[in-house]
Design a protein around this nucleic acid. Structure first.
Lengths: 168, 168
DNA sequence: CTAAATTATTTTATACTTAAACTATTTGGT
DNA sequence: ACCAAATAGTTTAAGTATAAAATAATTTAG
């Protein structure tokens, strides 16, 4: 189960660090993580301060906003790339707070349908607008073509990683 | 305190979504998050399976690996971009497991110096090697120039975001 | 030379996260 | 019809994360 190409002996070009191979890939990962952490921290902070809301809760609403007829609960973990167990308390709380409803399916009593309420939708729209403008302000100094280029490149990167995961 | 340029009235070009402005910035953020989540999940899984270790613990060791004489404890939260309170239990556990030591400074008894042990260093090297090869395998299908290009672009993006945060 | 401000770190409260075990329900094979 | 396997969802245990309050030690100002 060889997941990795045998490290080619790079001997000639490596720098002062004797770390060995894969430096560029590791560096890319660290950049990716740093950018995400930086932006995520700021978004979290603002969600908290302005709306007393958390990002995972917002993410759930964002999914439901696109589905007027609601979603099977089990779809959420897949779309949000989080574990199922994780969503239970988050959904509980959103129901409790009146943003969404959770109704058991009549056809299959294991299944539950979650659906945004009118107030939920209203609250989401308001927050989504701020969310967009926060991002725009954070990324204001990144030229538009660079933004578009990165979108494309990261899409491809995501695809490449997914493929690699599939194969393993 | 205008953080955001007033949304220019895009009226003409917007697509089927009436989301409004900032679409590209939001899309970029979602891609960034998706890539990071995807890779992070896989790295976490492998750390767990192969070494029964977690990423935050590895991150602490990675910082200390570069500092043979140890680090002031307070440096860690800054470098790792996590909160200070968060590190206390992580450092506790690393000490307990013998990977690092924590000694109070003689000059300033508020300060503690953390330093990797020999076994810690050995364990770290072993894990770092795997970490690198996991990343290489995940990113194997991303061409080398693309990797290098992304490193640079993300570096600039990080700088731009940091500047934006500074100003706010 | 002491009171007040500052700094380093820990503690507390709340929330998120995963993996794995568990419950309830449905489905497919016999 | 029955029972084993599969599926949907929740619960549990351990760990990670933040913000904010608390503690302790040091520095600074008067």
């Amino acid at each position: 189960m060889a997941l990795v190409k045998e490290p080619s002996p790079v001997t000639a070009k490596d720098g002062p660090d004797q770390d060995g191979e894969y430096r560029a890939q590791t560096r890319l990962w660290l950049r990716l993580l740093a950018c995400t952490t930086l932006i995520e921290g700021e978004l979290r902070r603002r969600f908290r301060e302005e709306f007393d809301f958390t990002m995972p809760r917002f993410d759930v609403l964002a999914q439901l906003d696109r589905e007027p007829s609601g979603l099977v609960l089990g779809e959420l973990p897949k779309r949000l790339m989080v574990s199922a167990g994780n969503l239970t308390p988050i959904v509980d709380r959103l129901v409790e707070d009146g943003y969404i409803t959770r109704t058991p399916s009549t056809l299959d009593r294991r299944v539950q349908i979650v659906c945004m309420t009118v107030e939920g939708r209203k609250a989401f729209r308001r927050m989504a607008k701020s969310h967009g403008s926060w991002l725009a302000s954070l990324l204001a100094d990144v030229p538009q073509e660079r933004v578009n280029g990165l979108i494309e490149e990261l899409d491809e990167l995501k695809g490449a990683v997914r493929d690699a995961l599939q194969k393993s």
